[in-house]
Simulated assay, not measured.
Amino acid sequence: MKLRTLIAASTATAAMTFAGMATAETMRIGITQNNVGVDSYQTTYEKAFIAAAEANEDVEVVVLDAGGDVARQIAQMEDLIQQEVDAIIIWPTNGEAVIPAVRKAHQAGIPVVVTNSNIAEAGFAFVASFSGPDNITQGIRSAEIMCDRFKDLGIEDEAKVVHITGQPGYTTAIERAKGFNDRLPEVCPNVEQIDEQPGDWNREKSQQVMEAFLVKYDDIDGVYSGDDNMGVGAMNAAIAAGREGITFVGATNFAVGYEAMAAGTYWGSIYQSPVDDAEAALKTAIDLLNGEELPFLNYFDTPKITQDNMGDYTKPVF
């Protein structure tokens, strides 16, 4: 299969169409992504999605990126509806704001697959299926990693934790925070979470957030970040300030997190592959168009990874 053409969508956003020899049976699937340029996970996801589409002669895909702009993503959804694609995959910029656009696609008879980060529950009736990680479970597992580490260190009755969340309003950020915040008091009831601030999935901003935490609090034993990109930013701030003995736990094990674990400066994370994520989303859309019955929530597994078991996992490519 090959790149056939580069077209300009009505949203003034470049769209890439990938296909093989088009036939009457070709499935035309559109995807609007959250923000490919924000981190290496989303960049790798897009490459894997395109590769999976190119490997399937029955599929043609229109690849769009909202650049983190809700209004642009809504316009892209409307453009895909006007193009009468057979299915739409959306990686939401905001789980609440995109609901009207998802509803329009549903009303037009176009099945919608939500990928990676779900939309708000109010929009579930307009979604054919969700494909991605179980983010609440990821937050739960991160809390368990943190608690187990504190128990190993013998500080589970006195440890203090700060929390750096993802982008406000973003379902993944909300769900991972909820999983962590609900589970930590269950497994380590005497651990105190002393602050929580957003890092917006950005390493530099998270480093600044952590710098402020370090000034404000003399005693920090653990840091939970909604992904490793933010976690490494927080870790860098602590190293620069000479603050030792802090346990760093994240999610979505980025290469930088894996490397920091190998160096002994970062404790644990949740292993998640953007390649699996992308391939699962495309397969879900194809299965729906082939008339297969699918559960509403199609989760792929995301296991715990720490310094103790990281040898069982390959270094992430993102």
Rank of each mutant, 00 (worst) to 15 (best):
T44N: 06
D39Y: 07
T265K: 14
G179I: 07
N236W: 02
E84F: 00
I140C: 11
S142C: 05
G222E: 06
E46R: 08
W267G: 02
A260P: 00
E54L: 15
I239R: 14
T5A: 11
A101I: 06
F180V: 08
I89S: 04
M146S: 04
T137Q: 15
A278H: 06
F296R: 13
C147R: 04
Q207K: 13
P133T: 07
V162L: 02
V114H: 03
A9R: 00
A122G: 14
I270F: 04
G109L: 10
F49I: 09
Q82W: 02
S10N: 13
L214P: 01
A128E: 15
T302R: 04
N290I: 02
P185W: 05
G257N: 11
T284D: 03
A55S: 15
P189E: 13
S225G: 12
G132F: 04
F254M: 14
A71L: 07
T171S: 12
L64E: 02
Y313V: 12
S273D: 15
N298W: 10
F248D: 10
D134R: 01
A260S: 14
L64H: 02
A159N: 11
E292R: 01
I305P: 03
D301A: 15
Q167F: 00
V62T: 05
A278M: 10
S269N: 05
P100H: 12
I7M: 09
D276S: 04
Q307C: 07
A22I: 04
D39W: 03
S117K: 09
P168S: 13
E156N: 04
G264A: 08
D69H: 02
G132D: 11
N118R: 07
E175P: 04
V70D: 15
A212L: 14
E25V: 09
I31F: 06
I145G: 05
P189N: 14
A281V: 01
N309H: 12
S142Q: 09
S269K: 02
I7Y: 00
A108Q: 11
A251M: 04
G199N: 03
P111R: 05
Q33H: 08
N298C: 06
P198C: 06
R149A: 09
K2N: 13
I174R: 08
I7S: 03
I220S: 02
D301K: 08
T17I: 14
G257D: 14
I305M: 13
N190T: 11
A8Q: 14
Q193P: 03
K104I: 13
S10L: 09
V70S: 14
I31Q: 12
L288I: 12
K205H: 06
I194H: 02
M230H: 05
A108T: 14
G37Q: 10
D58T: 05
E60R: 04
G179C: 13
D58M: 05
D195N: 10
F130E: 11
V70I: 13
E244N: 01
I81Q: 09
V256R: 05
Q207W: 10
E186L: 06
G132A: 07
I305R: 03
A159W: 01
E96V: 12
A241N: 07
A87I: 05
H106Y: 15
L153Q: 12
I81N: 11
A143L: 03
A173H: 03
P274F: 11
